[in-house]
Design a protein around this nucleic acid. Sequence first.
DNA 1: AACAAACGAGAGCAGTGCTCTTGACTTTGG
DNA 2: CCAAAGTCAAGAGCACTGCTCTCGTTTGTT
Lengths: 247, 247
Amino acid sequence: MTTAEPAAAKTKAKPPTPRERARTQTIADIIRLGREHLAVHGAAALSLRAVARDLGVVSSAVYRYVENRDELLTLLLIDAYNELGDAVDAAVDAVPAGDFPGQFRALSKAVRAWAVREPSSYALLFGSPVPGYQAPGERTTVPGTRVIVRLVGIFDAAYRAGALSAEVTPAVVIPPTLAEDLAAIRAEMNLAAPDASLARGVLVWTSVFGAISFEVFGQYGPETFTARDDLFEHQLGVLQGVAGLQG
Amino acid sequence: MTTAEPAAAKTKAKPPTPRERARTQTIADIIRLGREHLAVHGAAALSLRAVARDLGVVSSAVYRYVENRDELLTLLLIDAYNELGDAVDAAVDAVPAGDFPGQFRALSKAVRAWAVREPSSYALLFGSPVPGYQAPGERTTVPGTRVIVRLVGIFDAAYRAGALSAEVTPAVVIPPTLAEDLAAIRAEMNLAAPDASLARGVLVWTSVFGAISFEVFGQYGPETFTARDDLFEHQLGVLQGVAGLQG
DNA sequence: AACAAACGAGAGCAGTGCTCTTGACTTTGG
DNA sequence: CCAAAGTCAAGAGCACTGCTCTCGTTTGTT
Protein backbone atom coordinates (compact mmCIF):
# COMPACT_ATOMS: atom_id res chain seq x y z
CA MET A 1 0.00 0.00 0.00
CA THR A 2 2.96 2.32 -0.28
CA THR A 3 3.00 5.07 -2.82
CA ALA A 4 6.35 3.97 -4.21
CA GLU A 5 5.51 3.17 -7.81
CA PRO A 6 8.53 4.20 -9.83
CA ALA A 7 7.14 2.78 -13.05
CA ALA A 8 4.02 4.88 -12.76
CA ALA A 9 5.58 7.74 -14.65
CA LYS A 10 5.41 5.83 -17.87
CA THR A 11 2.26 3.77 -17.45
CA LYS A 12 0.04 6.47 -15.93
CA ALA A 13 0.93 9.21 -18.40
CA LYS A 14 -1.03 7.57 -21.17
CA PRO A 15 -4.19 9.25 -22.38
CA PRO A 16 -7.34 7.47 -21.24
CA THR A 17 -8.46 4.68 -23.50
CA PRO A 18 -12.04 4.70 -24.75
CA ARG A 19 -12.77 1.94 -22.28
CA GLU A 20 -11.46 4.00 -19.40
CA ARG A 21 -13.48 6.98 -20.51
CA ALA A 22 -16.57 4.82 -20.77
CA ARG A 23 -15.92 3.47 -17.29
CA THR A 24 -15.53 6.95 -15.83
CA GLN A 25 -18.71 8.01 -17.55
CA THR A 26 -20.61 4.98 -16.28
CA ILE A 27 -19.53 5.66 -12.71
CA ALA A 28 -20.60 9.28 -13.13
CA ASP A 29 -23.97 8.06 -14.41
CA ILE A 30 -24.36 5.74 -11.45
CA ILE A 31 -23.67 8.60 -9.06
CA ARG A 32 -26.11 10.83 -10.89
CA LEU A 33 -28.85 8.21 -10.83
CA GLY A 34 -28.03 7.41 -7.23
CA ARG A 35 -28.49 11.05 -6.34
CA GLU A 36 -31.87 11.08 -8.03
CA HIS A 37 -33.00 8.01 -6.13
CA LEU A 38 -31.61 9.47 -2.94
CA ALA A 39 -33.55 12.67 -3.48
CA VAL A 40 -36.78 10.85 -4.24
CA HIS A 41 -36.74 7.85 -1.93
CA GLY A 42 -34.16 8.66 0.75
CA ALA A 43 -30.95 6.99 1.78
CA ALA A 44 -32.40 3.90 3.43
CA ALA A 45 -34.33 3.06 0.27
CA LEU A 46 -31.36 3.52 -2.04
CA SER A 47 -31.36 0.42 -4.22
CA LEU A 48 -28.57 -0.72 -6.46
CA ARG A 49 -31.04 -2.73 -8.48
CA ALA A 50 -33.17 0.34 -9.11
CA VAL A 51 -30.11 2.29 -10.21
CA ALA A 52 -29.20 -0.58 -12.50
CA ARG A 53 -32.66 -0.53 -14.03
CA ASP A 54 -32.45 3.19 -14.69
CA LEU A 55 -29.03 2.65 -16.15
CA GLY A 56 -30.56 0.10 -18.51
CA VAL A 57 -28.38 -2.67 -17.28
CA VAL A 58 -28.75 -5.83 -15.25
CA SER A 59 -28.20 -5.53 -11.51
CA SER A 60 -25.00 -7.52 -11.33
CA ALA A 61 -23.35 -5.26 -13.89
CA VAL A 62 -23.20 -2.29 -11.52
CA TYR A 63 -20.99 -4.32 -9.22
CA ARG A 64 -18.29 -3.96 -11.88
CA TYR A 65 -18.23 -0.26 -11.05
CA VAL A 66 -19.33 0.01 -7.44
CA GLU A 67 -18.13 -2.49 -4.89
CA ASN A 68 -21.39 -2.58 -2.95
CA ARG A 69 -24.21 -0.45 -1.66
CA ASP A 70 -22.10 1.13 1.03
CA GLU A 71 -19.55 2.14 -1.57
CA LEU A 72 -22.26 3.94 -3.53
CA LEU A 73 -23.39 5.59 -0.33
CA THR A 74 -19.85 6.78 0.26
CA LEU A 75 -19.64 8.20 -3.24
CA LEU A 76 -22.90 10.04 -2.74
CA LEU A 77 -21.72 11.24 0.66
CA ILE A 78 -18.55 12.73 -0.76
CA ASP A 79 -20.46 14.19 -3.67
CA ALA A 80 -22.94 15.85 -1.34
CA TYR A 81 -20.25 17.15 1.02
CA ASN A 82 -18.46 18.75 -1.87
CA GLU A 83 -21.59 20.24 -3.35
CA LEU A 84 -22.39 21.77 0.01
CA GLY A 85 -18.82 22.92 0.43
CA ASP A 86 -18.83 24.53 -3.00
CA ALA A 87 -22.10 26.31 -2.29
CA VAL A 88 -20.77 27.58 1.01
CA ASP A 89 -17.48 28.71 -0.46
CA ALA A 90 -19.21 30.56 -3.26
CA ALA A 91 -21.57 32.29 -0.87
CA VAL A 92 -18.83 33.35 1.53
CA ASP A 93 -16.50 34.46 -1.22
CA ALA A 94 -19.18 36.81 -2.49
CA VAL A 95 -18.97 38.80 0.74
CA PRO A 96 -16.27 41.45 1.22
CA ALA A 97 -13.20 40.13 3.02
CA GLY A 98 -13.61 42.26 6.11
CA ASP A 99 -17.34 41.73 6.61
CA PHE A 100 -17.17 38.86 9.08
CA PRO A 101 -20.78 39.00 10.24
CA GLY A 102 -21.81 39.00 6.59
CA GLN A 103 -19.62 35.99 5.92
CA PHE A 104 -21.11 34.11 8.86
CA ARG A 105 -24.63 34.83 7.69
CA ALA A 106 -23.79 33.96 4.09
CA LEU A 107 -22.33 30.64 5.17
CA SER A 108 -25.31 29.78 7.33
CA LYS A 109 -27.82 30.78 4.70
CA ALA A 110 -25.97 28.79 2.07
CA VAL A 111 -26.11 25.69 4.24
CA ARG A 112 -29.80 26.18 4.89
CA ALA A 113 -30.58 26.84 1.23
CA TRP A 114 -28.77 23.69 0.19
CA ALA A 115 -30.42 21.67 2.94
CA VAL A 116 -33.88 22.80 1.89
CA ARG A 117 -33.04 22.12 -1.75
CA GLU A 118 -31.56 18.67 -1.09
CA PRO A 119 -33.23 17.38 2.05
CA SER A 120 -32.31 13.76 1.44
CA SER A 121 -28.65 14.59 0.95
CA TYR A 122 -28.74 16.79 4.03
CA ALA A 123 -30.27 13.91 5.96
CA LEU A 124 -27.54 11.62 4.72
CA LEU A 125 -24.84 13.98 5.95
CA PHE A 126 -26.32 15.35 9.15
CA GLY A 127 -29.22 13.10 10.08
CA SER A 128 -29.45 9.73 11.70
CA PRO A 129 -26.51 7.51 10.85
CA VAL A 130 -27.42 4.81 8.34
CA PRO A 131 -27.51 1.59 10.38
CA GLY A 132 -24.65 -0.71 9.57
CA TYR A 133 -22.87 1.91 7.51
CA GLN A 134 -19.67 3.49 8.71
CA ALA A 135 -18.27 6.23 6.52
CA PRO A 136 -14.60 5.64 5.68
CA GLY A 137 -12.94 8.52 7.47
CA GLU A 138 -9.93 8.66 5.20
CA ARG A 139 -12.18 9.54 2.27
CA THR A 140 -14.90 11.62 3.91
CA THR A 141 -13.10 13.63 6.58
CA VAL A 142 -11.67 16.26 4.27
CA PRO A 143 -14.85 17.05 2.31
CA GLY A 144 -16.92 16.53 5.46
CA THR A 145 -15.10 19.25 7.38
CA ARG A 146 -15.11 21.92 4.72
CA VAL A 147 -18.00 23.86 6.22
CA ILE A 148 -16.76 23.85 9.78
CA VAL A 149 -13.23 24.68 8.65
CA ARG A 150 -14.61 27.61 6.73
CA LEU A 151 -16.72 28.75 9.68
CA VAL A 152 -13.80 28.53 12.07
CA GLY A 153 -11.74 30.44 9.56
CA ILE A 154 -14.24 33.27 9.59
CA PHE A 155 -14.30 33.40 13.38
CA ASP A 156 -10.54 33.30 13.67
CA ALA A 157 -10.01 35.91 11.00
CA ALA A 158 -12.49 38.12 12.81
CA TYR A 159 -10.60 37.62 16.04
CA ARG A 160 -7.28 38.47 14.44
CA ALA A 161 -8.86 41.54 12.90
CA GLY A 162 -10.16 42.64 16.28
CA ALA A 163 -13.75 42.16 15.16
CA LEU A 164 -14.60 39.44 17.66
CA SER A 165 -15.64 40.53 21.13
CA ALA A 166 -13.17 39.06 23.56
CA GLU A 167 -15.58 39.67 26.39
CA VAL A 168 -18.58 37.45 25.98
CA THR A 169 -21.64 37.92 28.08
CA PRO A 170 -22.53 36.28 30.28
CA ALA A 171 -19.15 34.99 31.28
CA VAL A 172 -19.30 31.22 31.56
CA VAL A 173 -16.41 29.36 33.10
CA ILE A 174 -14.64 26.78 30.96
CA PRO A 175 -13.49 23.74 32.92
CA PRO A 176 -9.91 22.50 32.39
CA THR A 177 -10.97 19.36 30.55
CA LEU A 178 -12.89 21.38 27.99
CA ALA A 179 -9.98 23.82 27.76
CA GLU A 180 -7.75 20.90 26.82
CA ASP A 181 -10.03 19.93 23.97
CA LEU A 182 -10.13 23.52 22.78
CA ALA A 183 -6.36 23.81 23.03
CA ALA A 184 -5.99 20.74 20.83
CA ILE A 185 -8.34 22.25 18.27
CA ARG A 186 -6.47 25.55 18.39
CA ALA A 187 -3.17 23.79 17.82
CA GLU A 188 -4.42 21.58 15.01
CA MET A 189 -6.19 24.34 13.13
CA ASN A 190 -3.60 26.97 13.91
CA LEU A 191 -6.04 29.35 15.56
CA ALA A 192 -5.56 32.43 17.67
CA ALA A 193 -8.94 32.92 19.33
CA PRO A 194 -9.19 32.24 23.08
CA ASP A 195 -11.10 29.43 24.71
CA ALA A 196 -14.26 31.40 25.36
CA SER A 197 -14.54 32.43 21.72
CA LEU A 198 -13.84 28.94 20.46
CA ALA A 199 -16.44 27.47 22.75
CA ARG A 200 -18.94 30.05 21.56
CA GLY A 201 -18.06 29.12 18.02
CA VAL A 202 -18.83 25.48 18.68
CA LEU A 203 -22.20 26.39 20.14
CA VAL A 204 -23.02 28.62 17.19
CA TRP A 205 -21.99 25.84 14.82
CA THR A 206 -24.25 23.26 16.43
CA SER A 207 -27.06 25.79 16.81
CA VAL A 208 -27.06 26.70 13.13
CA PHE A 209 -27.29 23.05 12.16
CA GLY A 210 -29.84 22.44 14.88
CA ALA A 211 -32.10 25.11 13.47
CA ILE A 212 -31.69 23.80 9.93
CA SER A 213 -32.27 20.21 11.00
CA PHE A 214 -35.46 21.17 12.82
CA GLU A 215 -36.74 22.80 9.69
CA VAL A 216 -35.64 20.15 7.20
CA PHE A 217 -36.64 17.20 9.36
CA GLY A 218 -40.03 18.68 10.12
CA GLN A 219 -39.57 19.01 13.85
CA TYR A 220 -41.50 22.23 13.85
CA GLY A 221 -45.06 21.23 13.31
CA PRO A 222 -46.43 21.62 9.80
CA GLU A 223 -48.10 24.91 10.66
CA THR A 224 -46.16 26.30 13.58
CA PHE A 225 -43.92 28.57 11.55
CA THR A 226 -44.88 29.98 8.21
CA ALA A 227 -42.21 32.72 8.09
CA ARG A 228 -39.28 30.34 8.15
CA ASP A 229 -36.93 32.65 6.31
CA ASP A 230 -37.56 35.34 8.89
CA LEU A 231 -37.21 32.88 11.73
CA PHE A 232 -33.84 31.73 10.47
CA GLU A 233 -32.69 35.29 9.90
CA HIS A 234 -33.64 36.16 13.43
CA GLN A 235 -31.81 33.15 14.80
CA LEU A 236 -28.71 34.14 12.84
CA GLY A 237 -28.90 37.59 14.32
CA VAL A 238 -28.98 36.23 17.83
CA LEU A 239 -26.26 33.70 17.14
CA GLN A 240 -24.09 36.40 15.64
CA GLY A 241 -24.32 38.17 18.94
CA VAL A 242 -23.57 34.94 20.81
CA ALA A 243 -20.46 34.44 18.74
CA GLY A 244 -19.35 37.97 19.48
CA LEU A 245 -19.23 39.01 15.85
CA GLN A 246 -19.55 42.76 15.75
CA GLY A 247 -21.57 44.10 12.91
CA MET B 1 -63.37 12.06 17.77
CA THR B 2 -65.39 13.47 20.66
CA THR B 3 -65.25 11.91 24.07
CA ALA B 4 -69.00 11.55 24.25
CA GLU B 5 -69.55 7.78 24.37
CA PRO B 6 -72.57 7.28 26.58
CA ALA B 7 -73.04 3.61 25.72
CA ALA B 8 -69.50 2.78 26.66
CA ALA B 9 -70.39 2.40 30.29
CA LYS B 10 -72.12 -0.91 29.73
CA THR B 11 -70.21 -2.48 26.87
CA LYS B 12 -66.71 -1.45 27.86
CA ALA B 13 -67.04 -2.22 31.56
CA LYS B 14 -66.60 -5.95 31.04
CA PRO B 15 -63.44 -7.45 32.50
CA PRO B 16 -60.92 -8.47 29.86
CA THR B 17 -61.27 -12.01 28.67
CA PRO B 18 -58.20 -14.24 28.80
CA ARG B 19 -57.95 -13.86 25.06
CA GLU B 20 -57.92 -10.08 25.31
CA ARG B 21 -55.29 -10.18 28.00
CA ALA B 22 -53.14 -12.50 25.93
CA ARG B 23 -53.51 -10.19 22.98
CA THR B 24 -52.50 -7.16 25.01
CA GLN B 25 -49.51 -9.04 26.36
CA THR B 26 -48.44 -10.14 22.88
CA ILE B 27 -48.59 -6.57 21.60
CA ALA B 28 -46.52 -5.45 24.57
CA ASP B 29 -43.98 -8.17 23.77
CA ILE B 30 -43.82 -7.06 20.17
CA ILE B 31 -43.15 -3.47 21.24
CA ARG B 32 -40.48 -4.63 23.67
CA LEU B 33 -38.74 -6.77 21.05
CA GLY B 34 -39.12 -4.00 18.52
CA ARG B 35 -37.38 -1.61 20.89
CA GLU B 36 -34.51 -4.04 21.29
CA HIS B 37 -34.13 -4.40 17.55
CA LEU B 38 -34.39 -0.65 17.17
CA ALA B 39 -31.65 -0.12 19.73
CA VAL B 40 -29.34 -2.66 18.11
CA HIS B 41 -29.95 -2.24 14.41
CA GLY B 42 -31.63 1.12 13.98
CA ALA B 43 -34.98 2.15 12.60
CA ALA B 44 -34.33 1.50 8.92
CA ALA B 45 -33.31 -2.08 9.68
CA LEU B 46 -36.33 -2.79 11.85
CA SER B 47 -37.65 -6.10 10.59
CA LEU B 48 -41.03 -7.58 11.40
CA ARG B 49 -39.71 -11.00 10.51
CA ALA B 50 -36.88 -10.67 12.99
CA VAL B 51 -39.31 -9.60 15.69
CA ALA B 52 -41.46 -12.60 14.83
CA ARG B 53 -38.46 -14.92 15.16
CA ASP B 54 -37.62 -13.54 18.58
CA LEU B 55 -41.25 -13.89 19.53
CA GLY B 56 -41.03 -17.55 18.55
CA VAL B 57 -43.71 -17.24 15.96
CA VAL B 58 -43.97 -17.27 12.20
CA SER B 59 -43.77 -13.91 10.45
CA SER B 60 -47.34 -13.75 9.26
CA ALA B 61 -48.66 -14.19 12.80
CA VAL B 62 -47.33 -10.79 13.82
CA TYR B 63 -49.72 -9.19 11.36
CA ARG B 64 -52.57 -10.29 13.59
CA TYR B 65 -51.34 -7.77 16.15
CA VAL B 66 -49.59 -5.07 14.15
CA GLU B 67 -51.05 -3.87 10.89
CA ASN B 68 -47.70 -3.39 9.15
CA ARG B 69 -44.17 -2.17 9.67
CA ASP B 70 -45.18 1.46 9.79
CA GLU B 71 -47.70 0.67 12.51
CA LEU B 72 -44.93 -0.88 14.61
CA LEU B 73 -42.80 2.16 13.93
CA THR B 74 -45.62 4.36 15.17
CA LEU B 75 -45.98 2.31 18.34
CA LEU B 76 -42.25 2.58 18.98
CA LEU B 77 -42.37 6.29 18.22
CA ILE B 78 -45.09 6.91 20.79
CA ASP B 79 -43.35 4.68 23.28
CA ALA B 80 -40.10 6.58 22.88
CA TYR B 81 -41.76 9.99 23.04
CA ASN B 82 -43.42 9.04 26.29
CA GLU B 83 -40.27 7.59 27.79
CA LEU B 84 -38.44 10.79 26.96
CA GLY B 85 -41.30 12.86 28.28
CA ASP B 86 -41.37 10.90 31.52
CA ALA B 87 -37.63 11.31 31.99
CA VAL B 88 -37.86 15.03 31.36
CA ASP B 89 -40.83 15.47 33.69
CA ALA B 90 -39.10 13.58 36.47
CA ALA B 91 -35.92 15.61 36.08
CA VAL B 92 -37.71 18.94 36.03
CA ASP B 93 -40.00 18.05 38.92
CA ALA B 94 -36.96 17.31 41.05
CA VAL B 95 -35.93 20.98 40.83
CA PRO B 96 -37.50 23.58 43.17
CA ALA B 97 -40.46 25.35 41.62
CA GLY B 98 -38.83 28.78 41.50
CA ASP B 99 -35.47 27.69 40.13
CA PHE B 100 -36.14 28.30 36.46
CA PRO B 101 -32.54 28.12 35.28
CA GLY B 102 -32.20 24.86 37.17
CA GLN B 103 -35.34 23.54 35.51
CA PHE B 104 -34.06 24.49 32.08
CA ARG B 105 -30.75 22.75 32.71
CA ALA B 106 -32.44 19.70 34.22
CA LEU B 107 -34.69 19.39 31.19
CA SER B 108 -31.82 19.72 28.75
CA LYS B 109 -29.63 17.28 30.62
CA ALA B 110 -32.45 14.78 30.84
CA VAL B 111 -32.96 14.94 27.08
CA ARG B 112 -29.25 14.50 26.47
CA ALA B 113 -28.95 11.64 28.94
CA TRP B 114 -31.85 9.82 27.32
CA ALA B 115 -30.49 10.50 23.84
CA VAL B 116 -27.09 9.08 24.75
CA ARG B 117 -28.72 6.09 26.40
CA GLU B 118 -31.11 5.40 23.51
CA PRO B 119 -29.42 6.75 20.40
CA SER B 120 -31.56 4.75 17.99
CA SER B 121 -34.77 5.95 19.58
CA TYR B 122 -33.45 9.49 19.59
CA ALA B 123 -32.61 9.11 15.91
CA LEU B 124 -36.13 7.86 15.25
CA LEU B 125 -37.66 10.90 16.93
CA PHE B 126 -35.27 13.68 15.96
CA GLY B 127 -33.14 12.36 13.11
CA SER B 128 -33.77 11.93 9.44
CA PRO B 129 -37.37 11.10 8.64
CA VAL B 130 -37.79 7.45 7.73
CA PRO B 131 -38.40 7.49 3.97
CA GLY B 132 -41.94 6.61 3.06
CA TYR B 133 -43.10 6.81 6.63
CA GLN B 134 -45.37 9.60 7.78
CA ALA B 135 -46.17 9.66 11.47
CA PRO B 136 -49.91 9.86 12.10
CA GLY B 137 -50.20 13.27 13.70
CA GLU B 138 -53.36 12.50 15.63
CA ARG B 139 -51.50 9.84 17.60
CA THR B 140 -48.01 11.31 17.87
CA THR B 141 -48.56 15.04 18.30
CA VAL B 142 -49.45 14.96 21.98
CA PRO B 143 -46.57 12.73 23.17
CA GLY B 144 -44.28 14.34 20.62
CA THR B 145 -44.74 17.82 22.01
CA ARG B 146 -44.34 17.01 25.69
CA VAL B 147 -40.74 18.25 25.88
CA ILE B 148 -41.29 21.53 24.07
CA VAL B 149 -44.49 22.17 25.99
CA ARG B 150 -42.60 21.65 29.19
CA LEU B 151 -39.74 23.89 28.06
CA VAL B 152 -42.10 26.66 27.03
CA GLY B 153 -43.84 26.27 30.35
CA ILE B 154 -40.58 26.89 32.17
CA PHE B 155 -39.83 29.97 30.11
CA ASP B 156 -43.29 31.40 30.53
CA ALA B 157 -43.41 30.72 34.24
CA ALA B 158 -40.07 32.46 34.56
CA TYR B 159 -41.43 35.42 32.64
CA ARG B 160 -44.53 35.66 34.80
CA ALA B 161 -42.31 35.44 37.89
CA GLY B 162 -40.17 38.27 36.60
CA ALA B 163 -37.17 35.95 36.23
CA LEU B 164 -36.84 36.34 32.48
CA SER B 165 -34.91 39.34 31.20
CA ALA B 166 -37.25 41.35 29.08
CA GLU B 167 -34.35 43.14 27.51
CA VAL B 168 -32.34 40.72 25.46
CA THR B 169 -28.97 41.65 24.10
CA PRO B 170 -28.27 42.29 21.39
CA ALA B 171 -31.66 43.54 20.36
CA VAL B 172 -32.71 41.87 17.14
CA VAL B 173 -35.71 43.09 15.26
CA ILE B 174 -38.58 40.69 14.73
CA PRO B 175 -40.29 41.13 11.36
CA PRO B 176 -44.09 41.22 11.29
CA THR B 177 -44.47 37.83 9.64
CA LEU B 178 -42.48 36.17 12.38
CA ALA B 179 -44.41 38.14 14.96
CA GLU B 180 -47.61 36.67 13.55
CA ASP B 181 -46.31 33.14 14.01
CA LEU B 182 -45.27 33.96 17.54
CA ALA B 183 -48.63 35.52 18.30
CA ALA B 184 -50.36 32.35 17.13
CA ILE B 185 -48.13 30.28 19.42
CA ARG B 186 -48.77 32.63 22.31
CA ALA B 187 -52.49 32.37 21.80
CA GLU B 188 -52.58 28.61 21.41
CA MET B 189 -50.36 27.89 24.38
CA ASN B 190 -51.77 30.69 26.50
CA LEU B 191 -48.44 32.40 27.05
CA ALA B 192 -47.51 35.79 28.41
CA ALA B 193 -43.91 36.26 27.28
CA PRO B 194 -43.27 38.85 24.56
CA ASP B 195 -42.11 38.15 21.04
CA ALA B 196 -38.41 38.60 21.69
CA SER B 197 -38.46 36.12 24.55
CA LEU B 198 -40.47 33.58 22.57
CA ALA B 199 -38.12 33.85 19.64
CA ARG B 200 -35.17 33.37 21.96
CA GLY B 201 -36.89 30.34 23.39
CA VAL B 202 -37.26 28.80 19.95
CA LEU B 203 -33.59 29.34 19.28
CA VAL B 204 -32.61 27.80 22.60
CA TRP B 205 -34.89 24.87 21.91
CA THR B 206 -33.34 24.13 18.51
CA SER B 207 -29.85 24.77 19.85
CA VAL B 208 -30.18 22.27 22.67
CA PHE B 209 -31.33 19.61 20.26
CA GLY B 210 -28.68 20.65 17.76
CA ALA B 211 -25.96 20.12 20.32
CA ILE B 212 -27.39 16.76 21.34
CA SER B 213 -27.83 15.64 17.76
CA PHE B 214 -24.24 16.53 16.93
CA GLU B 215 -23.05 14.41 19.80
CA VAL B 216 -25.37 11.45 19.28
CA PHE B 217 -25.04 11.40 15.51
CA GLY B 218 -21.28 11.63 15.67
CA GLN B 219 -20.95 14.96 13.89
CA TYR B 220 -18.11 15.94 16.13
CA GLY B 221 -15.21 13.84 15.03
CA PRO B 222 -14.43 10.76 17.09
CA GLU B 223 -11.63 12.55 18.93
CA THR B 224 -12.49 16.23 18.75
CA PHE B 225 -14.19 16.46 22.11
CA THR B 226 -13.41 14.17 25.00
CA ALA B 227 -15.01 16.29 27.73
CA ARG B 228 -18.50 16.12 26.29
CA ASP B 229 -20.27 16.58 29.60
CA ASP B 230 -18.34 19.77 30.19
CA LEU B 231 -18.98 20.93 26.65
CA PHE B 232 -22.70 20.45 27.03
CA GLU B 233 -22.70 22.14 30.42
CA HIS B 234 -20.95 25.10 28.92
CA GLN B 235 -23.38 25.28 26.07
CA LEU B 236 -26.27 25.21 28.51
CA GLY B 237 -24.69 28.06 30.42
CA VAL B 238 -24.46 30.18 27.30
CA LEU B 239 -27.96 29.25 26.15
CA GLN B 240 -29.35 30.09 29.54
CA GLY B 241 -27.97 33.56 29.03
CA VAL B 242 -29.39 33.70 25.51
CA ALA B 243 -32.81 32.80 26.82
CA GLY B 244 -32.57 35.53 29.43
CA LEU B 245 -32.97 33.16 32.36
CA GLN B 246 -31.51 34.85 35.37
CA GLY B 247 -29.65 32.57 37.68
C1' DA C 1 -3.72 -13.25 -34.92
C1' DA C 2 -3.58 -14.55 -29.94
C1' DC C 3 -4.35 -13.55 -25.42
C1' DA C 4 -5.90 -11.38 -21.18
C1' DA C 5 -8.64 -8.08 -19.07
C1' DA C 6 -12.99 -6.05 -18.73
C1' DC C 7 -17.73 -6.47 -19.35
C1' DG C 8 -23.01 -7.60 -19.48
C1' DA C 9 -26.32 -11.10 -18.79
C1' DG C 10 -28.33 -14.54 -16.18
C1' DA C 11 -29.05 -17.79 -12.45
C1' DG C 12 -29.14 -18.32 -7.79
C1' DC C 13 -29.03 -17.61 -2.51
C1' DA C 14 -30.72 -15.42 1.53
C1' DG C 15 -33.15 -11.90 3.29
C1' DT C 16 -37.23 -8.41 3.45
C1' DG C 17 -42.60 -6.75 3.67
C1' DC C 18 -46.88 -8.36 2.89
C1' DT C 19 -51.13 -11.29 1.39
C1' DC C 20 -53.87 -15.25 1.20
C1' DT C 21 -55.48 -19.78 2.46
C1' DT C 22 -55.83 -23.62 5.58
C1' DG C 23 -56.62 -25.96 9.65
C1' DA C 24 -56.96 -25.73 14.65
C1' DC C 25 -58.39 -23.50 18.65
C1' DT C 26 -61.35 -20.56 21.86
C1' DT C 27 -65.39 -18.14 22.98
C1' DT C 28 -70.11 -17.57 22.85
C1' DG C 29 -75.06 -18.14 21.90
C1' DG C 30 -79.03 -21.19 21.30
C1' DC D 1 -74.09 -29.16 25.78
C1' DC D 2 -73.00 -28.49 21.29
C1' DA D 3 -72.56 -26.00 17.17
C1' DA D 4 -71.69 -21.44 15.12
C1' DA D 5 -68.74 -17.55 15.18
C1' DG D 6 -64.58 -15.54 15.98
C1' DT D 7 -59.56 -15.78 16.52
C1' DC D 8 -55.23 -17.60 15.83
C1' DA D 9 -50.59 -19.69 14.00
C1' DA D 10 -48.68 -21.71 10.18
C1' DG D 11 -47.31 -22.07 5.56
C1' DA D 12 -47.08 -20.97 0.69
C1' DG D 13 -46.32 -17.47 -2.35
C1' DC D 14 -45.26 -12.77 -4.68
C1' DA D 15 -42.23 -9.02 -5.42
C1' DC D 16 -38.46 -6.82 -3.87
C1' DT D 17 -33.56 -6.25 -1.95
C1' DG D 18 -28.00 -7.08 -1.71
C1' DC D 19 -24.72 -9.88 -3.37
C1' DT D 20 -22.01 -13.87 -5.71
C1' DC D 21 -20.85 -16.80 -9.31
C1' DT D 22 -20.49 -18.42 -13.98
C1' DC D 23 -20.65 -17.97 -18.86
C1' DG D 24 -19.99 -16.09 -23.18
C1' DT D 25 -18.80 -11.68 -25.51
C1' DT D 26 -16.35 -7.49 -26.37
C1' DT D 27 -12.30 -4.73 -26.08
C1' DG D 28 -7.47 -3.46 -25.94
C1' DT D 29 -2.77 -5.05 -25.91
C1' DT D 30 0.98 -7.83 -27.33
